[in-house]
Design a protein around this nucleic acid. Structure first.
Length: 732
RNA sequence: GGAUCCGUAGCUCAGUGGUAGAGCGUUCGGCUUACAUCCGAAAGGGCAGAGGUUCGAUACCUCUCGGAUCCACCA
């Protein structure tokens, strides 16, 4: 009935109330769930949004809740690759276009599930405005944003170290790396006249300098001097440079510098003009081709380099330690050393810092605008402490790496001319389904440009390569960048692109939106970037309030995870206890920004409450018929207070508190006290009926199904659907 | 190393500058004609500790202790 009645869509009624401050509507953009995943309990927390939407709709406002789903680039490709692996295949068995289409079909097949589940939870978004992040109009707008940002000088391409997962084959932004404490042998190596300590002996072959703290008296005299040092592959020369970041207390106080494989060293290398010389490749394997291509190598060293070459770091490292021992270069090993490593948040592999040209956004101008908006209270964060966390991030944010080396996403619309770069390095899956690497010119002898454009796996354009921005090929001789945008790059634009890509006039009418509700764990990933991007592109904040709900934990307070087996499937509980019970359990007595423990007991308790509401409805038809009650006046007075309180609480986004209030007032006041008084003739039927209808309205945003059902039996014929009924007014 | 949050009844958590609340659990008594997925009654808390502000603090400030989370660095 709700869906066919059209109430989910914002009313076009010119009589729709004009809201305070000239606001035309009450709008919430739904955080898009991953299109290919079934819902988890976190999505059920969107009930906060549905409560607010239903409340404002009943207030007579033009109310829009805009739903959608997310292509979730890395997550989805990762899931799909796991599926391929089960079938004994990998992403390299398919050319780019085929792989993309396969994932597209896979996602399409699953995307209906999430939507059906949202409906089962009783959510009331306007399905006619549904958007997917890869809908053509959305992609189009995202590309335009990129062009505009480039025009404003905020886009650049640069060689940087990226946190690269050699397992997943892509780099990540600084936010996506997880940190894990690991125990690794800390090796002290004789290094010419010095001793250095390291956990990564394998990178030593391409060290470019030695660094010491300029205030360290032991070493300061060596600064600027060059030493010949005996290594595993023969003698090398090394210059000592000054670096105030070197901690004299740590290890031996002298540090090797490897710009290609360490973030700090990369920066240090820039300052000192050191070359970036990688030794680990993008598969996590040792690459000694630079050495083996030399002439006249001593057989001993040649044998070693050949042995190491192509081995994974984890295999090569112990081998090198043995060789160091054999050469008498190993001083000692500290086996107790603990340090923190970056790991892939998807697969858990250790991330390799690797040099790769990437597209970046200059964030500074955007963070400044965001900070100002926060200072001016244009955006208000609900959830204690999170406003400070957000400010801290905005003040310290580094430029945003928006390139991802995956196919599932929006391909970066930068094109390189094969005329400018005939030696552009590409990896191409040929007609014979073999991976072929080489320069464009060479490949063109056997394949057409069109073949290469669609079949290309990866392209390594030089850092300073000229590129043309265009939605389609700008000419006959262009090859498109193979990287795709970080999913968050398009998600950051979600509040305005969904409205711009929708019905004409929507953006003007519904933007800026009022509330953004999401879990606090994506405050930085998403909310911060939406504020930045919204301000940059529209000049306005994307939303006025950010409601950060907590994470839903199990009844013991443990984080839910698949490995612990304590994951709650929301739909299971909908089956068992009803959607109303689950909804109520999720918001009852919760506060913004705080985790809540939701287990069976709590949901069962709320099922009992649902039942209580139902039974009160049954009582109404057999209530005491008295037309006058001596407590009627007090009854109305208290009812008025209840309406006032709940209205105020909802206006202040205190959803958990409002749920608690309506629960207590309905059960312990209306049922326990007032119904009993009616039985004794102290409260009239008229007053009681009016009170019950008021409570049905107050309860409706929280428990839409039972309340609508009771309303259907009681009052719908005269008064229409409860979902569209008028919120009770209170006299102050 | 930096930051944030929390410490209230046995458990899980709300809450407020003016003599403490809910759910679950516990105890006792009830199939009272809406509801035993219920009703009635009861036990149980000097709101972590110390100091300060205030006429008055659980609530505001400082410190201590305890717990959680986030970020940075680690050759």
């Amino acid at each position: 009935m709700w869906e066919t009645s059209g109430v989910f869509a914002p009313k076009n009624d010119p009589e729709a109330k004009t809201l305070p401050a000239g606001r035309q509507a009450f709008t919430i953009i739904m955080p898009p769930p991953n299109a290919n995943d079934p819902l988890h309990i976190g999505h059920a927390m969107y009930v906060v949004e549905d409560i607010l939407i239903r409340y404002h709709r009943m207030r007579g406002e033009a109310t829009l809740w805009l739903p959608g789903t997310d292509h979730a680039g890395i997550e989805t490709q990762f899931v799909f690759e796991k599926k391929l692996k089960k079938e004994g295949k990998s992403r390299f068995d398919f050319d780019r276009k085929t792989l993309y289409n396969m994932i597209w079909d896979y996602v399409q097949k699953n995307s209906g599930i999430a939507v059906a589940q949202l409906k089962k939870l009783g959510f009331s978004p306007d399905w006619s405005r549904f958007k997917f992040t890869l809908d053509p109009q959305i992609v189009d707008l995202v590309l335009e944003t990129f062009f505009e940002l480039h025009k404003r000088g905020l886009v650049y391409r640069d060689l940087r170290l990226v946190n690269y997962c050699t397992r997943c084959g892509t780099g990540y932004s600084e936010l996506e790396a997880k940190h894990e404490v690991k125990k690794d042998p800390f090796i002290y190596i004789k290094y010419g006249p010095f001793t250095i300590g390291t956990v990564r002996p394998e990178t030593k072959f391409r060290d470019t300098a030695l660094a010491v703290n300029p205030t360290d008296k032991r070493y300061s005299k060596h600064i600027g001097k060059t030493f010949e040092i005996m290594g595993l592959l023969g003698p090398i020369t090394m210059t000592v440079i000054a670096d105030p970041d070197v901690d004299p207390e740590f290890g031996t106080g002298i540090m090797k510098v490897t710009p290609a494989h360490d973030f700090h060293d990369f920066e240090l290398g820039k300052q000192n003009n050191l070359p970036v010389t990688p030794i680990v490749d993008f598969n996590g394997k040792m690459d000694f081709s630079w050495f083996l291509s030399k002439k006249d190598i001593e057989p001993k060293y040649k044998e070693r380099a050949e042995r190491y070459h192509g081995l994974h770091v984890s295999k090569a490292r112990p081998m090198m330690i043995e060789d160091l021992k054999a050469d008498g270069l190993l001083e000692k090993i500290d086996e107790t050393y603990e340090h923190t490593l970056s790991t892939c948040y998807r697969c858990g592999s250790v991330l390799e810092p690797l040099p790769l040209p990437q597209f970046f956004l200059s964030v500074k101008p955007m963070t400044q605008k965001a900070l100002k908006a926060l200072r001016d209270k244009k955006v208000k964060i609900h959830g204690p402490g999170y406003d400070k966390i957000l400010v801290h991030w905005l003040e310290n944010l580094k430029d945003w790496n928006i390139s991802r080396q995956i196919v599932w996403g929006i391909r970066i619309p930068a094109w390189y001319s094969t005329k400018d770069y005939p030696n552009l390095q590409v990896t191409f899956l040929g007609n014979d389904k073999q991976l072929i690497s080489g320069a464009v010119g060479e490949l063109l002898k056997v394949h057409t440009l069109e073949d290469i454009r669609t079949g290309i796996q990866s392209l390594k354009a030089p850092v300073d390569a000229k590129f043309t921005l265009s939605k389609t090929s700008p000419g006959d001789n262009f090859i498109q960048e193979t990287d795709t945008f970080d999913t968050w790059f398009s998600s950051a634009q979600w509040p305005f692109v969904t409205l711009q890509a929708n019905k004409p006039g929507d953006f003007e009418r519904f933007y800026p939106t009022q509330v953004m509700d999401t879990a606090y764990d994506i405050l930085i990933f998403w909310v911060m970037r939406m504020i930045m991007m919204g301000l940059e592109m529209t000049g306005e904040v994307p939303f006025e309030h950010v409601y950060l709900h907590g994470l839903v934990r199990d009844e013991k307070g443990q984080k839910m995870s698949k490995s612990k087996g304590n994951v709650i499937n929301p739909l299971e509980y909908v089956e068992k206890f009803g959607a109303d019970a689950l909804r109520m359990a999720l918001v009852m007595s919760t506060t913004a920004g705080k985790d809540s423990n939701t287990g069976k007991d709590k949901i069962r308790g709320m099922r009992n409450f649902t039942n209580k509401v139902w039974n009160a409805g049954r009582f109404m038809s057999m209530a005491n018929q008295s037309t006058e009650g001596k407590n009627d006046k007090d009854f109305h007075a208290h009812l008025n207070e209840v309406v006032k309180t709940i209205t105020r609480q909802l206006d202040q986004l205190k959803v958990g508190l409002a749920a608690e209030t309506v629960y207590n007032e309905f059960w312990h006041w209306f049922c326990d006290a007032c119904i009993e008084q009616n039985k004794k003739g102290k409260i009239s039927l008229k007053a009681l009926t009016q009170g019950f209808e008021t409570f049905l309205k107050l309860l409706h945003p929280f428990m839409p199904f039972v309340t609508e059902e009771i309303w259907d039996k009681l009052a719908r014929k005269e008064k229409g659907l409860l979902i569209a009924a008028h919120w009770p007014t209170s006299e102050s």
